[in-house]
């Protein structure tokens, strides 16, 4: 017959053994965990790649992307040619108070203008400040990591 150890003793044993072990938690604001490269923290914008096609804004499930642009006349590429118009980006803003971090905008962008970055420390006291304009979005580009190697 197996001897039944009372639960209290077992519990105290767990307490004792845990006390002697190293904690698994990280002392957050002082130490920081390194997040996986695919983590969806914040969306970075590569301004030069954006062609104001509006695909991301249209595919966004909760319409949190605001894009404004205008057409600019370009000089003809060779003398005697026809002057071309080119769309120029005036405003690109993502409202992170609305964003649901689904990543559809990054996926549909046909010109590699949007990237995911694992940075996540941009909470604000004022909800209006969660609206990131294009300068701030471009700033996130510095934090975009290299994609991970793949399983063979």
């Amino acid at each position: 017959m197996r001897l039944r150890i009372p639960g209290v003793i077992k519990g105290m044993w767990v307490t004792l053994s845990t006390m002697l072990r190293k904690p698994v938690t990280v002392n957050y604001p002082l130490e920081k965990e390194v997040l996986v490269p695919r983590a969806r923290g914040v969306i970075a914008l590569d301004i030069d790649n954006c062609t104001v096609c509006m695909l991301c804004a249209r595919e966004c499930p909760d319409w949190c992307i605001y894009i404004e642009g205008h057409k600019e006349e370009q000089p003809p590429s060779k003398p005697g040619g026809r002057p071309r118009t080119r769309a120029t980006l005036d405003r690109f803003a993502i409202d992170y108070a609305l964003c649901m971090y689904c990543g559809i905008c990054v996926e549909v962008c046909p010109f590699d203008a949007l990237y995911w970055s694992p940075s996540h420390e941009y909470s604000e006291g004022d909800i209006g400040a969660m609206l990131h304009e294009k300068e701030r979005l471009a700033d996130w580009m510095k934090t975009v990591p290299e994609p991970p190697d793949l399983e063979a």
Binding site: V106, E107, V108, C109, W116, P148, L150, E151
Partner: peptide, 18 residues
């Protein structure tokens, strides 16, 4: 893939190494 663009399209979202 990570994105629809020419560069990002190459980054398949297969299981990461390890």
């Amino acid at each position: 893939a990570a994105g629809g663009g020419a560069t990002q399209k190459k980054l398949a979202q297969d299981l990461p190494a390890g």
